[in-house]
């Protein structure tokens, strides 16, 4: 917001710090361990993966250069595109659900509904659990014979709606999206609540005077003010869902009919479960996916920034 309207401040050269603000040896000492770890365990593996993507990598043999054949193969790989579709669906639907439900919940707490302290804990707890625990728990909830969902449906008399939720290609992905929503909405709610609480009270008082209704206050005053936070949360959630692996791995492993296959699970399958032992092709998937995620994040930030001149 500031950069475009106040070029003067940017143009001012930074004030020269005192001499000891640049003690080279101290900088090197402080930065070296972090850089070393970064180089050894992040940068090098990434470069290795990129190198892999143009090679055939099997045990007991030297890597064999295959050019871009993996990339061409990937272009024609139906399972990969299915996985891309699923992951993108997840990464677009989940953030919207999480953030919109979280906004309503945060608003309720902001309006001081009874038991708000208890509610905050109850809503936030799911995010503390590991995906492994969450996966097992929800497999039970979706169990056909005695799971909570079907038991509830039968109890209210909708026996016909009972389903093997994770076993049908039409319901499996939505069922898993409901799990991530369950897990992450509370987290989003807490962030939004924090943003609401930090709003200047004058603004809200002004709205009172203008005789805005409860809904009007929400729509015209609060939401626009916390908009940057909401957009940040959407981007965060988007990134998280583009990576999703653990939950699928514990529950469905991509079944049925690849309805829940995500790019991460497919990479893992191809790298560590496929009968070929080749690490080259899965690396290609990883590289292509990396580019897609990057592009997605850039596009989202660009989009939001244009609309709202959002600051990061």
């Amino acid at each position: 917001m500031t950069a475009s309207t106040q070029p003067a401040t940017v143009a001012t050269p930074p004030r020269k710090e005192r001499d000891h603000a640049n003690p080279r040896s101290a900088i090197a000492t402080f930065l070296f361990p972090a850089l070393l770890i970064y180089a050894a365990f992040t940068a090098l593996p990434v470069m290795r993966t990129i190198y892999n993507s143009t090679h055939l990598i099997v045990p007991n043999k030297p890597a064999e250069w295959v050019g871009f054949t993996h990339y061409i193969e990937l272009w024609n790989d139906n399972i990969f595109w299915k996985a891309v579709g699923n992951t993108l669906t997840w990464a677009t639907v989940a953030p919207l659900m999480e953030v919109s439900i979280a906004t309503i919940l945060a608003l309720a707490l902001y309006a001081k509904v009874p038991f708000s302290r208890f509610l905050r804990v109850a809503w936030f707890t799911p995010v503390l659990m590991s995906y492994v625990v969450v996966g097992i728990l929800w497999m039970w909830i979706y169990n056909y014979d005695w799971g909570a969902v079907n038991s509830f449906l039968r109890w209210i008399g909708l026996d016909g709606w009972a389903q093997p939720w994770l076993g049908h290609p039409d319901t499996a992905l939505p069922a898993l999206i409901a799990v991530t929503t369950w897990m992450w909405t509370g987290f989003n709610m807490v962030v939004i609540l924090a943003a609401m609480s930090s709003l200047p009270s004058e603004v809200l008082e002004a709205a009172e005077l203008d005789n805005c209704g409860w809904f009007g206050k929400l729509w015209f005053v609060i939401l626009p003010l916390i908009r940057p936070t909401l957009l940040n949360l959407i981007v965060l959630s988007f990134i998280g869902k583009m990576k999703i692996f653990d939950l699928v791995w514990v529950t469905t492993q991509g079944n049925p009919l690849w309805a829940t296959e995500t790019v991460s699970t497919y990479v893992y399958k191809r790298a560590f479960q496929w009968s070929t032992f080749d690490l080259g092709y899965p690396s290609t998937i990883a590289v292509v996916w990396f580019v897609i995620v990057m592009a997605g994040v850039l596009a989202l930030t660009r989009l939001f920034r244009q609309k709202d001149k959002l600051e990061y």
Partner: peptide, 12 residues
């Protein structure tokens, strides 16, 4: 299969 051979929870 269509004669309901398998359990409904077959997949899991």
């Amino acid at each position: 299969i269509d004669a309901s051979a398998f359990p409904a929870s077959f997949s899991s």
